[in-house]
Simulated assay, not measured.
Amino acid sequence: MLQTTNVKSLQVGIKHKLMGVDADLRFVGIYPTRDTQDCNKGWFCPYLFASARTPLVPRANDFSVCQFFGPFLGEGDYQMAHKLLSESAHSLSMCDPNPHNDIGTNRMVIVFTGISPFRADMWSTSRRPGCGTIIFHLLDGCPALIIPVTNKAPVCAWSPWTLAQMRQGQYAMNPLPGQYNAEWQHEQICEWLDTIVSVQHITATVRDRYVDVLSRMVSLVINGALALEKCKPLLGKLDPERSGIVMFRY
């Protein structure tokens, strides 16, 4: 397992021509929430808000994965995926990850990251006309994963569990029903990825055992995030309540 020794903070611009539209969100693995006041599951919503795409996440239900299907920003969302891939210190790929090479299908990059507003710790400063601005934090102990995906894959998606919840669940002596569990998150992500992965485009050497390989890859990301408890002095401005696992199609 990799250990985080450095955190890279990237200020990125999300170019758009939108005036404020509803984001098309679809939820996988829906189940009733145990806390209707909890808003952790929408931790990645500021990315959409910053680019004038308004997300609506129901408080009554929890879910395994939140999928975003549009409006799609070619110069924003794809470039975001390329940036996360190129700036990640380590990557694990089940296909050719180079976005300039055509493999016959789209790919998806999966990373653990944190987000921060543009200025003054206020998300309203990130929603700038024509170019949303947001800060991403990448950790060198959490590798980026790249898999080939089918046309069922969303523009982006995220796991609802935040780093704060992961830490709390990691040390819970008597976890409550619905509380964070690493094995549960692993199962949620792997089951969802299995519905969108394009098996025929996986590298031939791992195609026959891609289920095990994918499972181990996801484990490395989750374990890397859980190990951050030992690296608190390095984390700087990383907000545990705005950090988690995200996926971008490219």
Rank of each mutant, 00 (worst) to 15 (best):
A204I: 15
T203L: 11
L145V: 12
T150A: 01
S64P: 02
R128Y: 12
R119C: 02
G29R: 05
E229K: 15
C39H: 09
M108Y: 08
Q179K: 12
G141H: 00
A81Y: 03
Q165A: 08
C39I: 13
P58I: 04
P117E: 02
L84A: 00
S64K: 04
W123S: 04
A120E: 12
I14Y: 05
F63R: 04
M173F: 10
E241H: 12
L226G: 01
L220H: 11
F63N: 06
L214D: 07
A89V: 05
V28N: 01
G76Q: 00
Q79K: 11
M217D: 06
V155K: 06
R209N: 15
G42H: 07
S93I: 10
S219L: 13
G114E: 00
T33Y: 03
I146D: 00
E191L: 12
C231D: 05
D62Y: 05
V206Q: 11
H186F: 09
D239K: 14
C95M: 10
M173V: 14
G132V: 10
D22F: 14
T33E: 05
V28Q: 06
F69W: 13
W158H: 15
I189H: 03
K17C: 08
H186E: 10
D77K: 10
G178L: 04
H16Q: 08
G224A: 06
V12G: 02
L234D: 01
W123Q: 09
D212A: 15
Q11C: 10
G141Q: 05
D212E: 15
D62M: 03
G114S: 15
L214C: 03
P233Q: 07
I146L: 06
L18T: 10
Q188D: 15
F136C: 02
Q170N: 14
E229H: 14
P177S: 05
R128A: 12
L228I: 13
G178K: 04
M80N: 12
S64F: 06
L238R: 03
I222D: 00
N181A: 13
G42N: 00
L25C: 09
G20A: 02
N223M: 08
Q165G: 02
D208Q: 15
T195E: 08
Q79V: 04
V246H: 02
L214Y: 01
V12T: 00
L163I: 08
A89D: 02
P160A: 09
A182F: 03
D208I: 08
G224E: 01
L48K: 08
Q37Y: 12
